[in-house]
């Protein structure tokens, strides 16, 4: 029964992943490709015309060369030297795995991400004891989108290739912490009745923004601002569609195939 429950979540995630891949081709992927035409011209960013080229060393350079402050952070951070060591060891050469095309790589990544988010959603549902059904599936999806995409996007909006950004490790830490705090906060606000729970939920949601997302010191970029604005909206709209499909499909599969009778 446990396996069946997990399989149901994975299937829902794979279906949503296929849907998302199609949805991304409409607007998000063309904007990424467009932005990459400007990416190589950026003075601080090394040439990386497409995802096909070996990127490991380039990334390391971009972290170190970005700014004096970035260098200082790289020196202080316990994570970055380890990455640098790994890359200098020559174990990783980059490139899309298995020699797949760029589109296949994106499809594979969407399937994995879809299954991952679906399992996380199912996991939360199982642990807190509120099942995902057809009726509340869209609501589950909307809350997933709020926690994973909209609330973190307030501090770190979806970024195009070539955009200026703070050190990667700092941003990933802030992003992961914000997703976690937002999820717990939303649970407290939406599903707990006590006033004190709702207030602490709001405080948890606000906390990472009061702390502040890591920001780049130099915000100049060769990528046109209009592309960035279009991309942010397109990315958030596409992920909203992904989460709504995920929630509803999860609810459908739960009621149709997992629930006995």
């Amino acid at each position: 029964m446990i396996v069946k429950t997990l399989l149901a979540a994975i299937v829902a995630g794979l279906i949503s992943g296929v849907f998302t891949t199609a949805a991304q081709e409409l607007r998000v992927t063309p904007l990424i490709l467009h932005a990459e035409e400007f990416e190589g011209e950026a003075p601080a960013a090394p040439n990386q015309p497409s995802g096909q080229q070996p990127a490991a060393t380039d990334h390391q350079h971009s972290l170190n060369d970005a700014s004096p402050f970035g260098t200082m952070l790289a020196t202080l951070s316990p994570i970055t030297p380890a990455y640098a060591h790994e890359h200098e060891g020559g174990h990783e050469e980059g490139g899309v795995m298995f020699g797949m095309s760029r589109f296949s790589g994106t499809l594979l990544a969407n399937l994995v991400t879809g299954a991952g988010f679906s399992l996380l959603l199912a996991g939360v549902s199982l642990v807190i004891g509120y099942p995902i059904t057809i009726q509340n599936g869209a609501l589950w999806g909307a809350f997933g989108w709020l926690a994973v995409h909209l609330l973190p996007a307030i501090g770190l909006p979806p970024e195009l290739p070539g955009f200026p950004a703070a050190e990667l490790g700092d941003r990933q830490t802030w992003w992961a912490a914000t997703v976690l705090l937002s999820a717990v906060g939303l649970y407290l606000v939406a599903l707990r009745r006590e006033v004190i729970a709702k207030i602490s939920g709001l405080a948890l949601i606000a906390a990472p923004h009061a702390y502040g997302a890591p920001q780049p010191l130099d915000i100049s970029s060769n990528v046109p601002a209009v592309l960035g604005a279009e991309f942010a909206v397109a990315a958030l709209a596409t992920t909203l569609a992904f989460w709504l499909v995920l929630g509803v499909v999860s609810g459908f599969i739960n009621e149709r195939f997992v629930k006995p009778g």
Binding site: Q24, G51, Q52, G94, V96, M97, G105, T106, A109
Partner: peptide, 8 residues
Amino acid sequence: DTAHDTRH
């Protein structure tokens, strides 16, 4: 590199 477009 494989997940590049998905990550963005």
